[in-house]
Design a protein around this nucleic acid. Structure first.
Length: 420
RNA sequence: CGGGGCAUAGUAUAGUGGUAGUACGAGUGGUUUGGGACCAUUUAGUCUCGGUUCGAUUCCGAGUGCCCCGACCA
Protein backbone atom coordinates (compact mmCIF):
# COMPACT_ATOMS: atom_id res chain seq x y z
CA UNK A 1 0.00 0.00 0.00
CA UNK A 2 1.14 3.48 -0.81
CA UNK A 3 1.38 5.63 2.26
CA UNK A 4 0.20 8.64 0.27
CA UNK A 5 -3.14 6.83 -0.06
CA UNK A 6 -3.42 5.89 3.59
CA UNK A 7 -5.91 8.30 5.12
CA UNK A 8 -4.49 8.16 8.61
CA UNK A 9 -1.75 10.52 9.69
CA UNK A 10 0.71 9.83 12.47
CA UNK A 11 1.01 12.53 15.05
CA UNK A 12 3.83 13.68 17.18
CA UNK A 13 1.97 14.29 20.37
CA UNK A 14 0.09 11.91 22.59
CA UNK A 15 -3.59 12.57 23.12
CA UNK A 16 -4.21 14.18 26.47
CA UNK A 17 -7.25 12.03 27.22
CA UNK A 18 -5.31 8.80 27.31
CA UNK A 19 -2.99 7.55 29.96
CA UNK A 20 -2.35 3.98 28.90
CA UNK A 21 0.59 3.28 26.65
CA UNK A 22 -1.38 1.12 24.23
CA UNK A 23 -3.98 3.79 23.54
CA UNK A 24 -1.43 6.61 23.31
CA UNK A 25 0.72 4.82 20.78
CA UNK A 26 -2.05 3.26 18.75
CA UNK A 27 -3.79 6.62 18.45
CA UNK A 28 -0.59 8.49 17.64
CA UNK A 29 0.30 5.98 14.96
CA UNK A 30 -3.20 6.07 13.51
CA UNK A 31 -4.16 2.48 14.27
CA UNK A 32 -7.27 3.27 16.26
CA UNK A 33 -9.68 6.12 16.82
CA UNK A 34 -11.33 6.82 20.10
CA UNK A 35 -15.09 7.24 19.88
CA UNK A 36 -15.68 7.59 23.61
CA UNK A 37 -14.37 6.13 26.83
CA UNK A 38 -13.92 2.42 26.29
CA UNK A 39 -15.02 2.49 22.67
CA UNK A 40 -12.49 2.48 19.86
CA UNK A 41 -12.72 2.18 16.10
CA UNK A 42 -10.04 0.32 14.20
CA UNK A 43 -8.44 2.25 11.35
CA UNK A 44 -6.78 0.57 8.36
CA UNK A 45 -3.52 -0.25 10.12
CA UNK A 46 -5.19 -1.37 13.33
CA UNK A 47 -7.72 -3.36 11.41
CA UNK A 48 -4.92 -5.22 9.63
CA UNK A 49 -3.30 -6.11 12.95
CA UNK A 50 -6.62 -7.28 14.29
CA UNK A 51 -7.13 -9.40 11.16
CA UNK A 52 -3.71 -10.95 11.61
CA UNK A 53 -4.46 -11.80 15.21
CA UNK A 54 -7.83 -13.23 14.28
CA UNK A 55 -6.25 -15.15 11.41
CA UNK A 56 -3.91 -16.91 13.79
CA UNK A 57 -6.71 -17.70 16.20
CA UNK A 58 -8.90 -18.90 13.34
CA UNK A 59 -6.23 -21.29 12.07
CA UNK A 60 -5.78 -22.77 15.51
CA UNK A 61 -9.49 -23.05 16.15
CA UNK A 62 -10.05 -24.74 12.82
CA UNK A 63 -7.11 -26.97 13.65
CA UNK A 64 -8.94 -28.46 16.61
CA UNK A 65 -12.16 -28.91 14.69
CA UNK A 66 -13.82 -25.60 15.41
CA UNK A 67 -16.51 -24.44 13.00
CA UNK A 68 -16.85 -20.72 12.56
CA UNK A 69 -20.19 -18.97 12.80
CA UNK A 70 -21.29 -15.41 13.31
CA UNK A 71 -24.08 -14.95 15.76
CA UNK A 72 -26.29 -11.92 16.19
CA UNK A 73 -25.35 -9.15 18.55
CA UNK A 74 -29.01 -8.37 19.22
CA UNK A 75 -30.29 -10.96 21.61
CA UNK A 76 -33.76 -12.17 22.35
CA UNK A 77 -34.27 -12.35 26.13
CA UNK A 78 -36.11 -15.65 25.67
CA UNK A 79 -33.09 -17.93 25.94
CA UNK A 80 -31.70 -15.92 28.84
CA UNK A 81 -34.78 -16.39 30.95
CA UNK A 82 -33.91 -20.07 31.40
CA UNK A 83 -30.74 -19.18 33.23
CA UNK A 84 -31.92 -16.01 34.90
CA UNK A 85 -29.05 -14.05 33.44
CA UNK A 86 -31.23 -11.43 31.77
CA UNK A 87 -31.87 -10.05 35.24
CA UNK A 88 -29.82 -6.94 35.96
CA UNK A 89 -29.38 -8.12 39.50
CA UNK A 90 -27.56 -11.18 38.19
CA UNK A 91 -25.61 -9.59 35.34
CA UNK A 92 -24.97 -5.88 35.66
CA UNK A 93 -23.05 -5.30 32.44
CA UNK A 94 -26.03 -5.52 30.09
CA UNK A 95 -26.76 -2.94 27.47
CA UNK A 96 -30.45 -3.27 26.74
CA UNK A 97 -32.71 -1.76 24.17
CA UNK A 98 -36.28 -2.11 22.89
CA UNK A 99 -38.07 -2.87 19.68
CA UNK A 100 -40.74 -0.46 18.44
CA UNK A 101 -43.34 -2.79 19.93
CA UNK A 102 -41.62 -2.46 23.29
CA UNK A 103 -40.05 -5.93 23.33
CA UNK A 104 -36.88 -5.79 25.34
CA UNK A 105 -33.63 -6.89 23.72
CA UNK A 106 -30.12 -7.33 24.99
CA UNK A 107 -26.87 -6.48 23.27
CA UNK A 108 -24.57 -9.47 23.42
CA UNK A 109 -22.14 -9.50 26.30
CA UNK A 110 -21.53 -13.23 25.76
CA UNK A 111 -23.27 -16.04 23.88
CA UNK A 112 -23.70 -19.11 26.07
CA UNK A 113 -27.48 -18.93 26.09
CA UNK A 114 -28.15 -18.13 22.42
CA UNK A 115 -25.46 -20.57 21.35
CA UNK A 116 -26.90 -23.36 23.47
CA UNK A 117 -30.39 -22.65 22.18
CA UNK A 118 -29.18 -22.46 18.60
CA UNK A 119 -27.57 -25.88 18.78
CA UNK A 120 -30.75 -27.66 19.93
CA UNK A 121 -32.06 -28.64 16.50
CA UNK A 122 -28.60 -29.77 15.41
CA UNK A 123 -27.68 -32.06 18.26
CA UNK A 124 -30.02 -35.03 18.43
CA UNK A 125 -27.98 -38.08 19.26
CA UNK A 126 -24.53 -39.09 20.37
CA UNK A 127 -23.73 -39.29 16.66
CA UNK A 128 -23.90 -35.49 16.50
CA UNK A 129 -21.22 -35.10 19.16
CA UNK A 130 -18.70 -33.74 19.80
CA UNK A 131 -19.03 -30.30 18.26
CA UNK A 132 -17.00 -27.12 18.58
CA UNK A 133 -18.43 -23.85 17.35
CA UNK A 134 -16.77 -20.48 17.52
CA UNK A 135 -17.04 -16.93 16.28
CA UNK A 136 -15.40 -13.54 16.30
CA UNK A 137 -18.12 -11.28 17.47
CA UNK A 138 -18.68 -7.90 18.98
CA UNK A 139 -19.51 -7.96 22.65
CA UNK A 140 -21.02 -5.11 24.61
CA UNK A 141 -20.40 -4.71 28.28
CA UNK A 142 -21.55 -1.74 30.26
CA UNK A 143 -18.45 -1.54 32.41
CA UNK A 144 -18.71 0.85 35.30
CA UNK A 145 -15.25 2.01 34.48
CA UNK A 146 -13.57 1.56 31.13
CA UNK A 147 -9.82 1.76 31.42
CA UNK A 148 -6.45 0.89 30.01
CA UNK A 149 -7.18 1.90 26.43
CA UNK A 150 -8.25 -1.02 24.28
CA UNK A 151 -7.68 -3.47 27.13
CA UNK A 152 -11.00 -3.03 28.81
CA UNK A 153 -13.64 -1.48 26.64
CA UNK A 154 -17.38 -1.38 26.55
CA UNK A 155 -17.47 -2.75 23.02
CA UNK A 156 -14.91 -5.23 21.82
CA UNK A 157 -14.43 -8.21 19.58
CA UNK A 158 -14.20 -11.56 21.24
CA UNK A 159 -13.39 -14.97 19.92
CA UNK A 160 -15.72 -17.27 21.78
CA UNK A 161 -15.62 -20.99 21.26
CA UNK A 162 -18.19 -23.36 22.70
CA UNK A 163 -17.74 -27.10 22.89
CA UNK A 164 -20.41 -29.77 23.06
CA UNK A 165 -19.49 -33.21 24.35
CA UNK A 166 -21.18 -36.40 25.45
CA UNK A 167 -19.46 -36.71 28.76
CA UNK A 168 -17.26 -35.00 31.27
CA UNK A 169 -14.29 -37.08 30.14
CA UNK A 170 -14.85 -36.07 26.50
CA UNK A 171 -15.02 -32.48 27.63
CA UNK A 172 -11.80 -32.92 29.60
CA UNK A 173 -10.07 -34.18 26.48
CA UNK A 174 -11.26 -31.35 24.31
CA UNK A 175 -10.46 -28.82 27.02
CA UNK A 176 -6.86 -29.97 26.97
CA UNK A 177 -6.78 -29.66 23.19
CA UNK A 178 -8.02 -26.11 23.43
CA UNK A 179 -5.35 -25.40 26.02
CA UNK A 180 -2.68 -26.55 23.60
CA UNK A 181 -4.17 -24.50 20.79
CA UNK A 182 -4.13 -21.47 23.07
CA UNK A 183 -0.47 -22.08 23.84
CA UNK A 184 0.23 -22.08 20.11
CA UNK A 185 -1.77 -18.89 19.57
CA UNK A 186 0.09 -16.94 22.22
CA UNK A 187 3.41 -18.29 21.01
CA UNK A 188 2.64 -17.26 17.45
CA UNK A 189 1.60 -13.80 18.53
CA UNK A 190 4.96 -13.50 20.24
CA UNK A 191 4.00 -13.56 23.90
CA UNK A 192 4.31 -17.29 24.54
CA UNK A 193 7.08 -17.28 27.08
CA UNK A 194 5.42 -14.55 29.12
CA UNK A 195 2.01 -16.16 29.10
CA UNK A 196 0.99 -18.60 31.79
CA UNK A 197 -1.92 -20.96 31.89
CA UNK A 198 -3.16 -19.84 35.26
CA UNK A 199 -5.41 -21.60 37.71
CA UNK A 200 -8.46 -19.56 38.51
CA UNK A 201 -11.69 -20.20 40.29
CA UNK A 202 -13.82 -22.85 38.64
CA UNK A 203 -17.52 -23.37 38.81
CA UNK A 204 -19.98 -26.04 39.71
CA UNK A 205 -18.53 -28.50 37.26
CA UNK A 206 -14.82 -28.19 37.82
CA UNK A 207 -12.52 -27.21 40.60
CA UNK A 208 -10.65 -24.72 38.46
CA UNK A 209 -10.93 -22.81 35.28
CA UNK A 210 -7.86 -21.52 33.52
CA UNK A 211 -6.91 -18.05 32.51
CA UNK A 212 -4.09 -17.24 30.15
CA UNK A 213 -2.22 -14.51 31.91
CA UNK A 214 0.53 -12.53 30.25
CA UNK A 215 3.03 -11.02 32.62
CA UNK A 216 3.00 -7.26 32.15
CA UNK A 217 3.18 -4.34 34.55
CA UNK A 218 0.23 -2.71 32.85
CA UNK A 219 -1.96 -5.65 33.79
CA UNK A 220 -4.95 -5.49 36.10
CA UNK A 221 -4.55 -8.97 37.51
CA UNK A 222 -2.14 -10.41 40.02
CA UNK A 223 -0.83 -13.91 39.66
CA UNK A 224 1.65 -16.09 41.50
CA UNK A 225 4.09 -18.05 39.40
CA UNK A 226 6.22 -21.06 40.08
CA UNK A 227 8.88 -20.55 37.42
CA UNK A 228 10.19 -24.10 37.49
CA UNK A 229 6.93 -25.81 36.72
CA UNK A 230 5.47 -22.78 34.94
CA UNK A 231 2.40 -23.23 37.09
CA UNK A 232 0.63 -20.00 37.94
CA UNK A 233 -2.36 -19.24 40.10
CA UNK A 234 -4.56 -16.20 40.17
CA UNK A 235 -4.54 -14.15 43.34
CA UNK A 236 -8.21 -14.98 43.80
CA UNK A 237 -7.32 -18.64 44.43
CA UNK A 238 -4.10 -17.97 46.33
CA UNK A 239 -5.16 -19.96 49.36
CA UNK A 240 -3.53 -22.64 51.48
CA UNK A 241 -5.88 -25.29 50.12
CA UNK A 242 -5.18 -24.51 46.49
CA UNK A 243 -1.44 -24.28 47.04
CA UNK A 244 -1.48 -27.64 48.76
CA UNK A 245 -3.75 -29.10 46.10
CA UNK A 246 -1.38 -28.04 43.32
CA UNK A 247 1.65 -29.11 45.40
CA UNK A 248 3.21 -25.70 45.16
CA UNK A 249 5.75 -24.22 47.50
CA UNK A 250 4.55 -20.83 48.71
CA UNK A 251 8.10 -19.58 49.15
CA UNK A 252 8.84 -20.18 45.47
CA UNK A 253 5.85 -18.30 44.16
CA UNK A 254 6.62 -14.99 42.54
CA UNK A 255 3.96 -12.31 42.43
CA UNK A 256 3.44 -10.60 39.06
CA UNK A 257 1.01 -8.20 37.45
CA UNK A 258 -0.58 -9.71 34.41
CA UNK A 259 -3.12 -9.31 31.64
CA UNK A 260 -5.80 -11.92 31.11
CA UNK A 261 -5.55 -12.61 27.39
CA UNK A 262 -7.77 -15.66 27.34
CA UNK A 263 -9.74 -18.07 29.43
CA UNK A 264 -11.05 -21.58 29.17
CA UNK A 265 -13.93 -22.85 31.20
CA UNK A 266 -15.70 -26.13 31.77
CA UNK A 267 -19.39 -25.38 31.83
CA UNK A 268 -20.63 -28.92 32.31
CA UNK A 269 -24.40 -28.94 32.01
CA UNK A 270 -24.89 -25.51 33.50
CA UNK A 271 -26.46 -24.24 30.28
CA UNK A 272 -27.55 -27.41 28.54
CA UNK A 273 -29.86 -28.41 31.40
CA UNK A 274 -31.89 -25.22 31.76
CA UNK A 275 -31.96 -24.72 27.99
CA UNK A 276 -32.73 -28.35 27.36
CA UNK A 277 -29.87 -29.13 25.02
CA UNK A 278 -29.92 -32.91 25.12
CA UNK A 279 -28.87 -35.88 23.06
CA UNK A 280 -29.83 -39.54 22.96
CA UNK A 281 -27.12 -41.99 23.89
CA UNK A 282 -26.74 -45.52 22.50
CA UNK A 283 -29.42 -46.81 24.84
CA UNK A 284 -31.84 -44.10 23.84
CA UNK A 285 -31.53 -42.21 27.11
CA UNK A 286 -31.84 -38.41 26.96
CA UNK A 287 -28.78 -36.75 28.44
CA UNK A 288 -27.72 -33.14 28.75
CA UNK A 289 -24.82 -32.09 26.53
CA UNK A 290 -21.60 -31.34 28.40
CA UNK A 291 -20.24 -27.95 27.42
CA UNK A 292 -17.18 -25.77 27.64
CA UNK A 293 -16.50 -22.16 26.68
CA UNK A 294 -13.24 -20.62 25.63
CA UNK A 295 -12.55 -16.93 25.06
CA UNK A 296 -9.84 -14.72 23.65
CA UNK A 297 -10.05 -10.99 23.06
CA UNK A 298 -8.12 -10.19 19.88
CA UNK A 299 -8.12 -6.48 20.68
CA UNK A 300 -6.82 -7.04 24.15
CA UNK A 301 -4.18 -9.32 22.71
CA UNK A 302 -3.15 -6.54 20.36
CA UNK A 303 -3.00 -4.10 23.26
CA UNK A 304 -0.91 -6.51 25.26
CA UNK A 305 1.63 -6.77 22.46
CA UNK A 306 1.82 -2.98 22.33
CA UNK A 307 2.35 -2.74 26.07
CA UNK A 308 5.05 -5.38 25.96
CA UNK A 309 7.13 -4.54 22.91
CA UNK A 310 6.91 -0.81 22.30
CA UNK A 311 9.87 1.42 22.92
CA UNK A 312 10.38 5.16 23.30
CA UNK A 313 10.15 5.67 19.54
CA UNK A 314 6.91 3.84 19.05
CA UNK A 315 5.30 0.54 18.23
CA UNK A 316 7.23 -2.65 17.56
CA UNK A 317 5.18 -5.40 15.94
CA UNK A 318 6.09 -9.05 15.87
CA UNK A 319 6.18 -10.22 12.26
CA UNK A 320 3.21 -12.52 12.78
CA UNK A 321 0.74 -9.71 13.43
CA UNK A 322 2.32 -6.64 11.84
CA UNK A 323 -0.01 -4.76 9.50
CA UNK A 324 2.71 -4.90 6.85
CA UNK A 325 6.01 -6.75 6.87
CA UNK A 326 8.04 -4.07 5.18
CA UNK A 327 8.10 -0.31 5.39
CA UNK A 328 9.69 0.90 2.19
CA UNK A 329 11.01 4.45 2.33
CA UNK A 330 12.04 6.39 -0.69
CA UNK A 331 14.60 9.06 0.06
CA UNK A 332 15.10 10.89 -3.19
CA UNK A 333 15.16 7.73 -5.31
CA UNK A 334 11.56 7.40 -6.33
CA UNK A 335 12.25 5.50 -9.51
CA UNK A 336 14.18 2.72 -7.75
CA UNK A 337 11.71 2.68 -4.87
CA UNK A 338 8.76 2.38 -7.24
CA UNK A 339 10.41 -0.54 -8.99
CA UNK A 340 11.16 -2.23 -5.71
CA UNK A 341 7.61 -1.65 -4.51
CA UNK A 342 6.29 -3.37 -7.62
CA UNK A 343 8.73 -6.23 -7.18
CA UNK A 344 7.81 -6.84 -3.56
CA UNK A 345 4.10 -6.52 -4.26
CA UNK A 346 4.34 -9.08 -7.04
CA UNK A 347 6.07 -11.42 -4.61
CA UNK A 348 3.06 -10.89 -2.31
CA UNK A 349 5.11 -9.30 0.40
CA UNK A 350 3.08 -6.85 2.40
CA UNK A 351 4.65 -3.47 1.90
CA UNK A 352 3.76 -0.06 3.12
CA UNK A 353 5.51 2.22 0.66
CA UNK A 354 6.27 5.71 1.90
CA UNK A 355 6.07 7.48 -1.44
CA UNK A 356 5.39 10.85 0.11
CA UNK A 357 7.55 13.86 -0.53
CA UNK A 358 8.88 14.45 2.94
CA UNK A 359 12.14 14.91 4.70
CA UNK A 360 14.16 11.88 5.74
CA UNK A 361 13.87 12.64 9.43
CA UNK A 362 10.12 12.69 9.34
CA UNK A 363 9.95 9.46 7.39
CA UNK A 364 12.27 7.72 9.83
CA UNK A 365 10.42 9.00 12.86
CA UNK A 366 7.07 7.95 11.46
CA UNK A 367 8.39 4.57 10.42
CA UNK A 368 9.64 4.01 13.95
CA UNK A 369 6.27 5.06 15.32
CA UNK A 370 4.34 2.70 13.04
CA UNK A 371 6.61 -0.15 14.05
CA UNK A 372 6.63 -2.39 10.98
CA UNK A 373 9.14 -5.25 11.36
CA UNK A 374 11.47 -4.23 8.54
CA UNK A 375 12.41 -0.85 7.18
CA UNK A 376 13.89 -0.71 3.69
CA UNK A 377 15.48 2.57 2.69
CA UNK A 378 16.05 3.32 -0.96
CA UNK A 379 18.16 6.43 -1.25
CA UNK A 380 20.59 8.18 -3.52
CA UNK A 381 23.20 5.50 -2.82
CA UNK A 382 20.82 2.87 -4.11
CA UNK A 383 20.90 4.49 -7.52
CA UNK A 384 24.63 3.85 -7.80
CA UNK A 385 25.03 0.61 -5.87
CA UNK A 386 21.74 -1.13 -6.57
CA UNK A 387 21.51 -1.89 -2.86
CA UNK A 388 19.06 -0.81 -0.24
CA UNK A 389 19.40 -0.70 3.49
CA UNK A 390 17.31 -3.13 5.53
CA UNK A 391 16.81 -2.57 9.21
CA UNK A 392 14.69 -4.52 11.66
CA UNK A 393 12.54 -2.32 13.90
CA UNK A 394 13.45 -4.39 16.94
CA UNK A 395 17.19 -3.82 16.74
CA UNK A 396 19.80 -1.48 15.30
CA UNK A 397 21.54 -3.78 12.82
CA UNK A 398 21.57 -2.63 9.24
CA UNK A 399 22.00 -4.98 6.33
CA UNK A 400 22.57 -4.02 2.71
CA UNK A 401 20.54 -6.07 0.28
CA UNK A 402 20.53 -5.72 -3.47
CA UNK A 403 17.29 -4.52 -4.97
CA UNK A 404 16.78 -7.60 -7.11
CA UNK A 405 17.29 -9.95 -4.16
CA UNK A 406 14.87 -8.10 -1.93
CA UNK A 407 11.79 -10.16 -2.78
CA UNK A 408 13.45 -13.47 -1.99
CA UNK A 409 15.05 -11.93 1.09
CA UNK A 410 11.61 -11.23 2.54
CA UNK A 411 9.92 -14.32 1.15
CA UNK A 412 12.35 -16.33 3.22
CA UNK A 413 11.27 -14.39 6.31
CA UNK A 414 7.54 -14.71 5.81
CA UNK A 415 5.86 -15.52 9.12
CA UNK A 416 4.73 -19.12 9.34
CA UNK A 417 1.11 -19.99 8.98
CA UNK A 418 0.43 -17.47 6.28
CA UNK A 419 -1.07 -18.87 3.19
CA UNK A 420 0.01 -16.44 0.51
C1' C B 1 -20.87 2.88 42.15
C1' G B 2 -17.37 5.76 46.09
C1' G B 3 -13.11 9.15 45.86
C1' G B 4 -9.68 12.57 43.26
C1' G B 5 -8.32 15.49 38.98
C1' C B 6 -9.04 17.89 34.33
C1' A B 7 -12.01 20.56 30.23
C1' U B 8 -8.86 26.87 25.81
C1' A B 9 -7.67 26.31 17.56
C1' G B 10 -7.17 19.92 14.03
C1' U B 11 -3.15 18.39 18.01
C1' A B 12 -0.38 19.82 22.46
C1' U B 13 -0.26 23.78 25.73
C1' A B 14 -0.02 29.31 28.11
C1' G B 15 -2.81 33.22 30.14
C1' U B 16 -6.47 36.98 31.89
C1' G B 17 -12.97 39.73 35.56
C1' G B 18 -12.29 44.09 29.98
C1' U B 19 -9.82 42.86 21.96
C1' A B 20 -7.05 35.02 24.01
C1' G B 21 -1.02 33.88 23.14
C1' U B 22 2.74 30.05 21.71
C1' A B 23 4.30 25.48 19.25
C1' C B 24 3.06 21.69 15.92
C1' G B 25 -0.37 20.83 11.96
C1' A B 26 -2.90 22.62 7.59
C1' G B 27 -2.94 26.36 2.96
C1' U B 28 0.17 29.60 -0.29
C1' G B 29 5.20 31.34 -2.16
C1' G B 30 10.35 30.38 -1.81
C1' U B 31 15.01 28.05 -0.08
C1' U B 32 16.02 23.00 1.48
C1' U B 33 16.35 17.35 1.43
C1' G B 34 19.65 10.49 5.28
C1' G B 35 16.85 11.41 11.80
C1' G B 36 10.71 15.42 12.92
C1' A B 37 14.62 22.00 8.36
C1' C B 38 14.11 27.38 7.46
C1' C B 39 11.93 32.30 5.83
C1' A B 40 7.48 34.97 4.57
C1' U B 41 2.27 34.77 4.70
C1' U B 42 -2.64 32.75 5.75
C1' U B 43 -5.84 29.64 8.69
C1' A B 44 -8.41 28.29 13.20
C1' G B 45 -10.20 28.16 19.76
C1' U B 46 -12.27 29.28 25.63
C1' C B 47 -17.48 21.93 26.73
C1' U B 48 -23.14 23.04 27.85
C1' C B 49 -26.78 25.52 30.78
C1' G B 50 -27.70 28.84 34.70
C1' G B 51 -25.98 32.55 38.46
C1' U B 52 -22.93 36.89 40.23
C1' U B 53 -21.21 41.29 37.40
C1' C B 54 -21.59 47.19 33.55
C1' G B 55 -18.83 43.08 31.45
C1' A B 56 -17.38 35.86 32.60
C1' U B 57 -12.98 32.01 28.89
C1' U B 58 -11.63 33.47 34.07
C1' C B 59 -15.62 33.60 39.99
C1' C B 60 -20.01 30.38 41.79
C1' G B 61 -23.65 26.26 40.85
C1' A B 62 -25.50 22.30 37.97
C1' G B 63 -24.86 19.17 33.87
C1' U B 64 -21.92 16.57 30.37
C1' G B 65 -17.37 14.51 28.84
C1' C B 66 -12.47 12.54 29.75
C1' C B 67 -8.40 10.55 32.92
C1' C B 68 -6.72 8.23 37.49
C1' C B 69 -7.38 5.28 42.40
C1' G B 70 -10.77 1.88 44.58
C1' A B 71 -15.04 -1.42 44.10
C1' C B 72 -16.83 -4.50 40.16
C1' C B 73 -15.35 -7.80 36.10
C1' A B 74 -17.63 -15.56 32.04
Amino acid sequence: MRQSHLFTIPRKESPKDEESLNAKLLIRAGYIHKEMAGVYSYLPLGRRVLEKVMGIIREEMNGIGGQEVSMAALQNPEAWKFTGRFDEGVVDVWFKTRLKNDTELGLAFTHEEPMTAMMRPFIRSYRDLPRAVYQFQTKFRNETRAKSGIMRGREFIMKDLYSFSRSQSDLDMFYDEVALAYDRIFARVGIGERTYKTFASGGVFSKYSHEYQTVCDAGEDTIYIDEESRIAINKEVHTDEVIADLRLDVSKLVEKKSIEVGNIFKLGTKFSEPLNLTYKDEEGAMLPVVMGSYGIGPGRLMGTVVELFSDERGLVWPESIAPFQVHLLSLGADEQAEALYRLLSEAEIEVLYDDRDMRAGEKFAEADLLGLPYRVVVGKKSIETGMAEVKARANTDIEMVSLEDMASFFSARRPRGEKN
